[in-house]
């Protein structure tokens, strides 16, 4: 079963980043190391809308035993967990 959250609700602290890709982050008080990036994609939403729409880069990662989708809000420069597969 997968858990889905709206982006920017499950905020994480990114401890280490290299070339725009996450290496180490903290979520719910626990620090995790990214083992590999399985896929990534970008969504640029309704830029004409009043709120400017989204501009996110998504990364499907393996962090220890977890498979997570991280969302990087490119406007606010914040990271959050969008999906957890277990």
């Amino acid at each position: 079963m997968a858990h889905l959250w709206p982006v920017n609700t499950q905020i994480i602290d990114m401890v280490e980043i290299a070339d725009g890709l996450p290496l180490v982050f903290t979520w719910h008080g626990r620090t995790r190391r990214v083992k590999r990036v399985l896929a990534d994609w970008m969504a640029e939403g309704d830029w004409w809308a009043e709120d400017g729409g989204e501009q996110h880069r998504y990364l499907l990662i393996q962090a220890e035993a977890l498979i997570l989708t991280l969302a990087h809000d490119l406007i606010a420069n914040t990271w959050s967990v969008a999906r957890l597969a277990d």
Partner: peptide, 15 residues
Amino acid sequence: LTEARLTGSLPANHQ
């Protein structure tokens, strides 16, 4: 633009 987004006429991003 909103209709075009809803009907899938726009790309997902500007890449």
